[in-house]
Structures are given as structure tokens and as C-alpha cells.
Nucleic acid binder design. Structure first.
Lengths: 224, 224
DNA sequence: GCAAAAGTGTTATTAATACACCCATGG
DNA sequence: CCATGGGTGTATTAATAACACTTTTGC
């Protein structure tokens, strides 16, 4: 059933873009693709593209992420965070992009170009290469939202495997905030929240073995 | 210049909706309109409508607010806060709405229907009438965002005239948070922020006159 | 002088910060 | 035994929350 739309209603291109993050070697990385099409051919950009007919916004974000980067794992967190619709942002015409923030778990490394991309790769999120369209702005806002979510939700857990050590968790926080934290205060704060439960023990290659933790079963998920 | 769009790109209706707030009689009110068109004829809804060709999102929000409610004053704060794009949300087809939060200053009272509306009126924001589409959800999220902005920005000032008393400012906070606050703690906190400067004095009809304040000139605006 | 609203301080509790040493393991 | 990274406690400061009486005005 389709009722009529008013005459002056704008038909616009509806797109999604995805700022997908992961931690690699203790550093926050963003997943970027090198464009295989005009405009901005051979420029790095956020994964993204047009929403299909009958497709929800978050489905489109997941599909673009999968198809353009060939990653194998699903994001552990996906959240819309702002909609970019300024008139001149895309030379092809009026294209409105609903920007999403995605968190990929530890171990998500293999990415390669998809059908519509030349390459896909990880870049330091705090120092990305030049980006197409307004994607540098989008990425900057995604990082800010991610930092906010560290306080409100426990989004850092989504970057890690099911069990993890406190130094690992602290490393995630530090990578996202881009600054060092005090070890004792960090542990105090996190343990006081009651969202972690200890499990077994494990050795890292060198030094004293660290206690392993997992998410406490009562703890809410990172999704807000 | 217009490059070609990919074939499967969805053309969707792009709309804006506006949750506009003001304080009346110490209570947070939202501005609603009664629809004069199908669907949801004669149902109350948020002001909103389709974005025009060549019109920025925030311009569309301001225009719809003006045209549908005939208010005379400009909002003191306008902020996009979420985009609603679920497939079934509008029976006319795929319509994506970029929802905005607006703050109207004190004294904004005269509203009446516009061309595409039967009536416009203020309703208690915490207890609205049944609303069209998914507007009840949108309004709820707008209120939550407004409460957040009380802490981060000093958005409460946007509800008041240029000069105001501390009890008035406290009343704004209480109306938005929907709970009572301690007078002394509130004053201590607000004055410690250093965003207020005293000016003259004034009498209310009854009781001891209250000190008038204005925004300190160094204080950042409510816009984030 | 009384009703009505504005104004004012102190204490207790909790959260945030700064800071330095010992411990467990592998080689 | 030594290098490496994990783990722990305390003191200070800042922020938050609870709480009741006095002051100024209009009538």
C-alpha cells in the first residue's frame, strides 16, 4: 500500500557509512577502503554505500562492511551516531548518509577489497590518511562517540575476546582515549563497577601471569 | 554536475521531525500539531515534513516548525539527535526522518495550525497524547537527549529570557528532569560553574525579590 | 505582623587522583 | 638471578548529597 507523497518532497540517495574500529598492537585502528569508483577514485574512505530497497539501516551498514572489506566476523556493537546531509557533501547529488559506529572484536585482521573496492586495510584511527568526501569529519565524530561510550556503556569489552586480562582491558581504554591511565586507579574503578568476574589464570610469554576475567553475567551489553 | 548513482540505490523520502520544547507554568511542554492529511488524519504528531530540494536538514526543520505551528520566534537551540528509518514506520513508503530537538525561549506561546495542520498546541512533554507514526518514541528520545544536554551544555539557559533568577533557572532544570532539586546544592553548583553574572534586582508579585542573572560573556552557547 | 518566596553553611559521604613498591613467572 | 610484566594500598582532594533557618518584600 502506498499513499501519495507531497509534490515537493525530495527524493534523495540514502546511504550508510561505517566507522569500524578494532585494536591492533595496542593501538586503535579504523577500517578503511580504497575506492574503485568515481568520485574519489583510489582515495581511502569509510566503508559504506547505498541502502537497498526493503533494507533496514543497520542491515545496510552490516552488508557494506562485509562486502567492501571481506571481513569474516560480525561487529560486536553497531550504533548509528549521526546523519550527514549537507548539500555539497557528494558531487553526485543529494546524498544523505547515516553514519554508524562499529566495534570489531580482537582477532579481526584479514581484510581485502571487495567488488567495489580496490583494497581494504586498517589505519591508526587517530592519524588516518586523507579521506574522501566528508569522511574525515565522520571518523572524528565516531571516535568522540566511542570515547563517550567508554564511560557510559562498557564498550571496551566488545573489543576483546570472551576472557581477557585487566592489562589488556586497560590497553583498550588507553588506545581509545589516546592517553595513558594509572594502573591502580583503573583496576579499582573497573572492579568496583562489578561487571567483571575472574576465571582461571594464564601466562603471557613473559613476566608474571595475569588473572583472566570475563563479563559478569548480570552486566548489560555494550548496546545502548 | 551529477554523476550516476548505482542501480540498486534506494530513493527514499527524506523528512525531518522536530521535538520543540518550552517551559510553561513550570512544566516542560512539547509542541504538537494535529494532522490535516492522511495518514493519521486528526492525530497529534511532531511538526515535520519532507525536505525540499536544495534545502539543508536544519533549514527544513526550521521551516516545518514555522509553517506548521505559526510560531513567531526562532528556536534558541536546534540539534539533530537521531535518524529514524525503520521500514514500516510510514505507510506511504520508505521515509527516513532525521529527528531534531529544538528549544524555544520563554514567552513562545501563540501557536496555531498552518496550511497542512488543523491545530498546533503545547502538551506536557512527559505525558503527551497518543501520537502518529513512531513519534512517541521520537519524543521520548528527545527528552532523554535534552536531559543529557542539561549536564553537558548549559541548555537550560536557552529556555529563559536574557535575564532570569536562580529559582527560575532551577525550575527549568526541574521541569526537564521531572524531579525536585535541592535549592542550596543547585545554586552552589551553578554559581561554581561561573557561567552566570548578576545584574540588577527585581520583584516578583509576592515575596522577597530575587537577584537577576545573565549568561556570563565567556560562557559557551548551548549549541554543542 | 504575616504570608510568600529568596537566600544562605555545614557536615558526611562518595568518587577521583597521585604515587612506589613487591610478586610471580620464564629463561 | 634477573628481566618482564602483574599486582597491590594509602593519603589527598574534589564532588555530591542531605538538611533548616533567616531575610526581604507586599499587603
Amino acid at each position: 500500500m502506498t499513499l501519495s507523497l507531497p509534490p515537493q518532497a525530495t527524493q534523495v540517495g540514502l546511504a550508510v557509512d561505517v566507522a569500524a574500529f578494532a585494536i591492533h598492537e595496542g593501538c586503535l585502528h579504523a577500517l578503511l577502503i580504497e575506492r574503485a569508483t568515481l568520485p574519489h577514485l583510489q582515495t581511502w574512505a569509510l566503508p559504506g554505500g547505498f541502502v537497498h530497497v526493503g533494507e533496514e539501516l543497520h542491515e545496510a551498514a552490516l552488508r557494506e562492511l562485509r562486502d567492501e572489506t571481506s571481513i569474516e566476523l560480525e561487529p560486536r556493537h553497531l550504533e548509528q551516531f549521526y546523519t550527514f546531509g549537507a548539500i555539497g557533501r557528494d558531487p553526485r547529488g543529494r546524498i544523505v548518509s547515516v553514519a554508524h559506529l562499529a566495534v570489531l572484536p580482537h582477532g579481526t585482521v584479514h581484510v581485502m577489497g571487495g567488488a567495489t573496492t580496490l583494497h581494504a586495510d586498517w589505519f591508526p584511527a587517530h592519524a588516518p590518511p586523507p579521506l574522501a568526501f566528508d569522511h574525515a569529519v565522520i571518523l572524528g565524530r565516531a571516535i568522540k562517540r566511542l570515547q563517550l561510550r567508554l564511560e557510559y556503556a562498557n564498550l571496551a569489552l566488545e573489543f576483546l575476546p570472551e576472557t581477557f586480562t585487566l592489562p589488556e582491558l586497560q590497553g583498550v581504554h588507553e588506545a581509545i582515549l589516546d592517553k595513558a591511565l594509572d594502573k591502580r586507579n583503573f583496576r579499582k574503578r573497573l572492579l568496583a563497577q562489578g561487571i567483571l568476574t575472574p576465571s582461571g589464570e594464564r601466562r603471557s610469554g613473559v613476566g608474571r601471569p595475569a588473572q583472566l576475567y570475563r563479563r559478569a553475567k548480570g552486566a548489560r551489553t555494550g548496546l545502548l
